[in-house]
Design a protein around this nucleic acid. Sequence first.
DNA 1: CTATGTAGTTATCAGCCGATTACAACCAAC
DNA 2: GTTGGTTGTAATCGGCTGATAACTACATAG
Lengths: 210, 210
Amino acid sequence: MSAETERRSSSENRREQILASATAVFGERGLAGGTTDAVAHGAGVSQAYVVRMFGSKQELFVAVTERACARVMETFRAAIATLPADSPIPQRLEVLGRAYVGLTADRGILLTLMHAFTLGHDPRIGPIIRERYLEIYRIARDEAGLGPEQASHFLATGMLINTGMGMRMFDVAESDADARELLGCMWGDEADEAIALMASVPTLPDVGRR
Amino acid sequence: MSAETERRSSSENRREQILASATAVFGERGLAGGTTDAVAHGAGVSQAYVVRMFGSKQELFVAVTERACARVMETFRAAIATLPADSPIPQRLEVLGRAYVGLTADRGILLTLMHAFTLGHDPRIGPIIRERYLEIYRIARDEAGLGPEQASHFLATGMLINTGMGMRMFDVAESDADARELLGCMWGDEADEAIALMASVPTLPDVGRR
DNA sequence: CTATGTAGTTATCAGCCGATTACAACCAAC
DNA sequence: GTTGGTTGTAATCGGCTGATAACTACATAG
């Protein structure tokens, strides 16, 4: 394969490119609002190819959702693995919290999940997202040893962070003291760091068709 | 006006009917996924009338969002008004929590807000939802006297409840012990009551056009 | 009775977008 | 070198849906 012009790519590479693009698109626009054309444009392939590779837009969304959940679970498990067996609860919360902030580096992952959370009524997506969310809950409760109360509190904080991301609260954090304060309560000590990390992330460009 | 066949209605009545229908539709499908035709069907009017009354689908969504925020703020303020001036924080949290559970009686209100939270990038909706959310935060922090930490914790729990609603976690609460436990941590003592209240809420029917 | 505004409809247009089809380019093996 | 599978594209179709236009029905004032 030539180094310069790699016009053809392995199926797996393409698949990953498309999933990454779709994560950004679905994260910002959701299943109904995101178009296969925008996904294709972001991945540098044709719209037809996106649809054919995944069968349908809905199946692509399912794949993106599963991938996002897998990322979340990997990230949490990797964080948990760094903990000593007898570490106290506050330290466990701290480590998991940092892991969550790390997840925000890719907006699309958490925002796509947020959209998936609104699709419980969908017969295809509903069962998947419920199962995966409970799986994440069990990881926090059992594997991280937080117990039911702290685990649900942890997930609640995560949802507040997602909400702040979806609303783009960072855009007003500089000018609005209340926004800064609220974001500060979400992130704890790392608030400034996290806000700086996420501010001025560009909106997806509107892409005309083909 | 005849009592039986009210074929014509005052503009305000119609407006309220349309907003109620739109709240249900947008709550389930979001701005991009909800159709003006479904809204019209739910309100018993024609699709064209819905669009003309509000100018555009987006403006209808803005109106629904503003109405939903107003409901939330009214509900919180009414709950706060029942509190004695020197009531302790736990009691304040308890009263606000009950008020939030009361809001879940109309799924559409909280679910529409959840969709609005994903629209921060939208130049029309973003500024509105950020401003309203911060307003609600200030109500919890100042008017209810919770302070920053407890107020953000309260909002976080609210977001977890919204997420549970969006995922339709109630549908599996009967059969899945973890789901019951998680929902229990959200609602506290009223979990069973709340779950019973919200289970088996029908999905919006798919409505063909006209 | 007529005029005028309000409440509503039907019909239709025009653009968007997912999906399908047919075809092209490349590669590896025999 | 031809055969067959893989990687991809261009073109197009057809349904959905927001918006618009043109029209109808009713009510109220003068």
